[in-house]
Design a protein around this nucleic acid. Structure first.
Length: 258
DNA sequence: ATGGCACGCATGGCGTGA
């Protein structure tokens, strides 16, 4: 099973990139974040010819997640369900081939000390509670998406400059690590522990891609039994170089299923 | 040290992203 994750930064703007990549890579599952489109405006007609089943939850202007699957999901959930703000356009949980796939767009957090940053930390905590409530580390589970956290110093260019950045601050890394510790393994890191490989390069420094000044903030994690079955994973940088590119690119992984 | 670009929108500037 091949599964990929991609922050599109507007699905409508990125349709050619997404359709090209589906055609080229033929994943079984593609998780998208920042679709930036409310459900009534979702570009279904453009995507259906690809043959994928499409599950989506969006809102106007911001956020929004979607999951494309070869087969119809056996079940679908959206948002956190602890009685707080469900924030559906940031979490889709589908089950495909008996495997739970959780696609998240973790809040970015604006700046340290802001209410948005507190919300980010709380969101990661609530997500761990979600895993505890609905899943088990002994089951095959995949969690992927735009986590807005660079877990290690090597996951951001110039880490010393970004100690107070909301995607690298110690408290963000700790919050993320605490959710991961529920029972997940980063499959890219397991395969390539020493490799520096970013998934995001800022638009605002047009040279960021050529200078490789990026961040690894998009992640693919799996519970133990599944992580052991991940034989290949990689980041496809080419779509970041394309015309009208997103500021993120695709991360994918393959699992050999029993 | 600062800002830079892209996107969406009850759009002609602003909020948001990271």
């Amino acid at each position: 099973m091949k599964i990929a994750t991609y922050n599109v930064n507007s699905l409508r703007r990125r349709l050619p990139v997404v359709l090209d990549w589906l055609e080229k890579e033929k994943p079984d599952v593609l998780c998208l974040q920042e679709t930036k489109v409310q459900d009534s405006e979702f570009p279904l007609m453009a995507l259906l010819p690809s043959g994928y089943e499409i599950t989506y939850r969006g809102m106007k202007s911001y956020n929004g997640v979607a999951v494309l699957t070869r087969t119809k999901p056996e079940s679908v959930r959206a948002g956190l369900d602890d009685g707080g703000e469900p924030d559906e356009p940031r979490l889709l949980h589908v089950v495909v081939n008996g495997i739970a796939i959780i696609n998240t767009y973790i809040p970015q957090g604006f700046e340290i000390g802001s209410p948005k940053y507190a919300y980010k930390l709380e969101w990661l905590k609530r997500l761990r509670a979600y895993f505890e409530k609905h899943l088990s580390p002994s089951l095959p589970v995949i969690w992927c998406g735009d986590m807005n956290v660079a877990p290690r110093a090597m996951d951001v260019h110039s880490p010393e400059k970004h100690l107070k950045h909301v995607c690298y601050h110690e408290t963000a890394r700790e919050a993320y690590a605490s959710t991961v510790a529920w029972g997940f393994y980063d499959v890219f890191v397991r395969l390539y522990p020493e490799r520096q490989q970013f998934t995001f390069w800022d638009y605002r420094a047009p040279s960021s891609l050529d200078a490789n000044k990026g961040w690894r903030i998009d992640h693919m994690l799996a519970t133990a039994s599944l992580a052991d079955r991940c034989l290949r994973a990689d980041v496809d940088v080419e779509p970041r170089r394309a015309r009208d590119a997103s500021d993120h690119t695709f991360l994918w992984a393959e699992f050999s299923l029993p």
